[in-house]
Design a protein around this nucleic acid. Structure first.
Length: 579
RNA sequence: GCCUUCUUAGUUAAAUGGAUAUAAUGAAUCCCUCCUAAGGAUUAGUUGCAGGUUCGAUUCCUGCAGAGGGCACCA
């Protein structure tokens, strides 16, 4: 129906005098056909006359009456009405309106999918937490968000590749390795353990798994003598001694610890119903020592085209192109690459892989990083519009009415795994996604676990479960109807019209969520839909309706169930059959 | 100081520039001989302040006030 109206509108616009290409484009961009917010306004509405009127500096009254006549002329609609400041409201014939139910029950899991991103290759990189500790509840939000965005984009026709960037190079990994080694040799060094080493119990778990047949010999005496006031220098000194005294064993333990950490992260994410297509290691970008490694190549390119330069012994990138407030160091005066240099190479690698869009999901603390990455992309000769950075604000976790504190180094944090064990993956995902990603979120564990009305998650699940049970009871009562339900278009029953109207909005909600990368829109939609359902369910005793009506109602209810299930699926949540 | 996100019922939150700003919660009242009361119905209550753009602004722009986050040759 919307396609038909669109065609009529285009005909209408081209029939107008004094309109040029440019204007036409603007009008089509600004105007829209949408589903009305309320049935009292009919089923569909368009603002095209107001938009056209304002662009052509014409009175919109004249336009509305002309378009109204034209739409009435094709006799495909029950009623055309001009309303408000110049909307055209369209009421469909009942069979067209009610056909939505048949469509949903026919399309099943495909209902709501669209093709507006068809053929697009999108890469989405998210979580990418350093493999120096297990994932904590702070990472959960980015994980739930990134995965849901991936699912939604896929539903709009694009191919989506999920990627986790593993920072397996650099000082943090050295600290991890040192922490493990110090625990392994703790008896020989009087249990010495520097303040800045990682303290969580996961370090001990790695030690337990480490095969003891390898002899672990380090310079224990030098370690015992370490005495620094600055904890940063202290840990660096520890690392230096360990490496110098037995680089081979260091390497073995480093690799082992890293693999254990990555494995634990993968397991946690799997538990959270998330799987990745690619696990990209920072070390695969190579090092500066290799002449044609990816990292050397990208820096050389930047130097060659004049974007990067040498100053005070370091190599800097001029980031003015993106209005960054200062130039950024790529290679330090000690010859080592910065983390930023790896990132430049990594983003070049991503662009080279030919994606149409790169979506990075970062914690809000990375905010200051956006401009320099954009500058590097532009400086390498690509458009920064390819890159979309979505910031996810921190989540405050509340338990027993108190805020839960977190710090990775001290080992004092709430693990994502524990949260999932406590409330389940589905409820956790739901709450992480229940608010816009770029807003602060207070995550109340007690509420998430509660069975009360204020728990939206159960409210929606309850609607789904009620319909499942309704269908079961229906089949028990009418075993014959199972195979030949009457088509719903013949229904004259109208008490569920509000629900049908709401169901017809679902595809546009998915599109909106995909365009704005906001999964929470789906949650709010499902809540509204569930509300309509619960209300209907209370007012109408379905199975005591006439045989004819009950067939139609059951089909409508099944459609509601289907849409809840489809919506949950986009969020990575499984609907419940029983509460 | 600079950058950035934000400010909507008592509280927590919705709303691609659209019509009467939507829910939940809290308060008050009511509804189970009936398909799951983890539910429903009714009532009262909101766009920080001052301008601007627009036929139309919670939405876009400017200023002010207030809150969070970021401003390393750390990762």
């Amino acid at each position: 129906m919307i396609e038909i109206i669109n065609r009529e509108i285009e005909l209408f616009l081209s029939s107008l005098n004094d309109i040029d290409e440019e204007m036409l484009k603007t009008i089509l961009q600004k105007s829209k056909i949408s589903i009305t917010d309320d049935l009292s306004k009919g089923h569909l509405t368009t603002n095209v006359c107001m938009v056209t009127g304002s662009i052509l500096k014409k009175n919109s009254n004249e336009l509305t009456s002309r378009l109204k006549d034209q739409l009435e002329g094709i006799k495909l609609f029950k009623k055309i009405k001009v309303a408000g400041p110049g909307f055209i409201n369209i009421t469909l014939f009942r069979k067209d309106f009610i056909a939505t139910i048949d469509k949903i029950n026919f399309d099943k899991g495909d209902y709501g999918e669209s093709i507006f991103n068809k053929g697009k290759k999108i890469q989405i990189e998210f979580v990418s937490a350093n493999p120096t500790g297990p994932l904590h509840v702070g990472h959960g939000r980015g994980a739930a968000y990134g995965d849901a965005v991936g699912r939604i984009l896929k539903a709009t026709g694009s191919s989506v590749e999920r990627e986790y960037y593993i920072n397996d190079a650099g000082r943090q990994i050295d600290i991890l390795t040192a922490s493990v080694i110090l625990k392994l040799i703790s008896k020989n060094i009087n249990n010495y353990f520097p303040t800045n080493a990682y303290k969580g119990d996961y370090i001990e778990e790695i030690c337990k798994k480490f095969k003891k047949e390898i002899s672990i010999n380090f310079d224990n005496e030098s370690i015992k003598k370490i005495n620094y006031k600055d904890p940063e220098k202290e840990i660096d000194q520890v690392i230096a001694i360990l490496k110098d005294s037995n680089i081979k064993t260091w390497g073995i333990i480093k690799e082992f610890s890293l693999n254990e950490m990555i494995l634990s992260i993968k397991n946690d994410l799997r538990k959270f119903n998330i799987s990745y297509d690619i696990w990209f290691k920072e070390t695969s970008l190579g090092s500066l020592d290799e002449k044609s490694s990816q990292i050397s190549n990208s820096i050389n390119m930047l130097i060659k085209n004049g974007s990067a330069y040498k100053k005070d012994g370091a190599i800097w990138l001029n980031t003015e192109i993106s209005n960054d407030d200062k130039h950024r160091v790529l290679i330090r005066d000690n010859g080592k690459a910065t983390y930023f240099a790896s990132d430049v190479a990594y983003h070049k690698n991503k662009v080279d892989r030919g994606f149409d869009k790169l979506i990075n999901i970062w914690g809000a603390d990375h905010h200051g990083y956006i401009k320099r990455i954009e500058a590097s992309i532009e400086s390498l000769g690509f458009s920064k519009d390819k890159l979309i950075v979505k910031l996810v604000q921190f989540a405050n976790l509340f338990k027993n009415g108190k805020k839960v504190k977190m710090s990775t180094r001290s080992g004092d944090f709430y693990k994502l795994k524990d949260l999932i064990d406590e409330i389940g993956s589905d409820a956790a995902r739901f709450f992480y996604l229940s608010k816009q990603a770029d807003q602060h979120l207070d995550f109340d564990i007690d509420l998430a676990k509660s069975n009360s009305k204020e728990n939206m998650f159960y409210y929606i699940q309850y609607a789904h479960a009620r319909i499942v049970s309704l269908e079961e009871n229906f089949i028990k009562k009418y075993p014959d109807f199972e195979k030949n339900l009457k088509p719903i278009q013949e229904s004259t029953y109208d008490k569920f019209d509000k629900i049908i109207h709401e169901l017809s909005k679902y595809p546009s909600i998915v599109d909106k969520a995909a365009k704005s990368l906001q999964p929470h829109l789906i949650i709010f939609y499902l809540k509204d839909l569930s509300h309509l359902f619960h209300s209907f369910y209370n007012d109408n005793h379905v199975l005591s309706e006439s045989d004819e009506n009950v067939q139609s109602i059951i089909q409508c209810m099944s459609a509601v169930k289907q849409v809840i299930s489809n919506g949950f699926n986009l969020l990575g949540i499984s609907p419940l059959k029983k509460m």
